[in-house]
Design a protein around this nucleic acid. Structure first.
Lengths: 199, 199
DNA sequence: GTCTATATGAAGATAGAC
DNA sequence: GTCTATCTTCATATAGAC
C-alpha cells in the first residue's frame, strides 16, 4: 500500500503540482481514505521528500559509478549523458517533480534535497574539469557548462514519449553529439561569426 | 495600482508558486485588501495569464524581428540566443513563472499560453531548418535541437544573479559558443568516441 | 491498517457600504 | 477604488472505533 500511495502521489504531483494535488485524490487513487495515508507517511511533505530522495540518489549513485569505472573524458561524458537521459525518460514524472517542486519543501527537507542536487552538479563538474585538464574539452566556464548540460538533458523528461517517434538511445546519441560537437557543420574556426559576415 | 498588484504577484508566484501564494499576501504587498484586487483583475488566474502573456509576446516579437531583419543563419542564431538570455535575465521571475506554472492554467487560458510557446518553438525551428538547408548547420533533428537550445537558455533564469560573477553578455557568448561549437577542443571528427578508445 | 467523524484553518471570491 | 464583513469550499491533519 505504501507503494500504491507513492505511485498515486507521483502521478498527481506531476500532473497538477504538489500544492494542487489533494491528499483525498491521492488516497482515492490508491483505493483508501485520506486519513489512512497518515499510517504510512507522517504528512504530505514526507511523501514528496521520499519521491525526490529516491531518484536523486539513484542518479548520483550511477554517476559515481561511471566516474569510478571510466577514465576517458569523452566516454565519461557520454555515459553521464546516457545515465541522465535514461533515468529522466524511465522516471519521467518523478524527475519532473524533482525539477519543479523543490520550492514546495521547507527547512531541513529542502536543504537535504538541494544537497543531493549540488552533489550531482559537483560530480559533473569534476568530470568536465578533468576533461579540460586533459585537453579533451575546450576550456570553458565549468559551472555554466554543467548547468547547460543538465538543463538540456533534464528537459527531455517534459517532451519524451515512450511511444513517440524517437527511441531513448536515439535521444541519447543526439544530445551527446549536440553537447560535444555543437551545431556548426564546419570544423571549429573554419567559419566564425566574423568570417561569415563577408559572405 | 494594477502594476503594483502584478509586481507583487510576480514576486510571490516565483518564490512560492502560484497555488502556494495567497491573494491576501499579494494584496498586503501591494498595500491593499484582498477584495480590492478583484476591482483590477477578474480572478487570480487572470493575474497569472497576464504575466505570462506579456512576456511571451515580447519574446516572440523580438525573435520575429530578428528573422525579418537578419538572414545569415549564424547571426540569426546568435541574436536568437542573445534575445532569449537577455529577456530571461532581465525578467527572471516572470520567465521562471512561465516555465513552471503553465499547468496551473485551465482550459482556454492554458491553450492560449501554450500556443504562444508553440509559436516561439516554430520560429526557432524555422531558423534551424533554414540554416541546415544552407549548409551552415549540421543536419540534425530540428525539433529535438530546438528543445535543447530553449531548455539550456531558459534555465539561465534560475541561476543568474545580476550582481554575480558573470555579465549577461558573457553568458550570451558562452551559450552561443557551446551551442555552435560544442565541448570538444578538437575539430569534429578528429577525435571520435571510437578513436579515443585506442588511447 | 483502515475506517468514520471531525477539528482547524485558510483559501478564493462576492456583497454592499463609503 | 478601496474597504469590512462574510460566504462557501476545501485543505491537511488528528482522534478513536473496529
Amino acid at each position: 500500500m505504501r507503494d500504491n500511495i507513492r505511485a498515486a502521489a507521483v502521478q498527481l504531483f506531476a500532473e497538477y503540482g504538489y500544492h494542487a494535488a489533494p491528499l483525498r485524490d491521492i488516497a482515492r487513487m490508491a483505493g483508501i481514505q485520506a486519513a489512512s495515508i497518515y499510517y504510512h507517511y507522517a504528512n504530505k511533505e514526507a511523501l514528496l521528500v521520499e519521491i525526490m530522495e529516491t531518484h536523486m540518489r539513484h542518479l548520483n549513485a550511477n554517476l559515481e559509478r561511471i566516474l569510478r569505472e571510466q577514465h576517458d573524458p569523452l566516454k565519461r561524458l557520454y555515459e553521464a549523458i546516457a545515465n541522465h537521459i535514461r533515468l529522466h525518460t524511465s522516471y519521467k514524472s518523478e524527475f519532473f517533480i524533482i525539477d519543479t517542486e523543490i520550492r514546495a519543501l521547507e527547512g531541513e527537507n529542502r536543504r537535504y534535497i538541494l544537497s543531493l542536487r549540488d552533489h550531482y552538479e559537483s560530480l559533473l563538474q569534476e568530470l568536465l574539469q578533468d576533461g579540460m585538464e586533459q585537453g579533451t574539452f575546450r576550456l570553458s566556464d565549468i559551472k555554466v557548462t554543467s548547468y547547460a548540460i543538465i538543463a538540456m538533458c533534464t528537459e527531455v523528461s517534459t517532451w519524451f514519449r515512450p511511444s513517440g517517434r524517437l527511441s531513448v538511445q536515439q535521444v541519447i546519441d543526439m544530445y551527446s553529439q549536440m553537447i560535444t560537437q555543437g551545431l556548426l557543420s564546419l570544423s571549429p574556426g573554419a567559419q566564425s561569426l566574423e568570417e561569415s559576415e563577408r559572405t
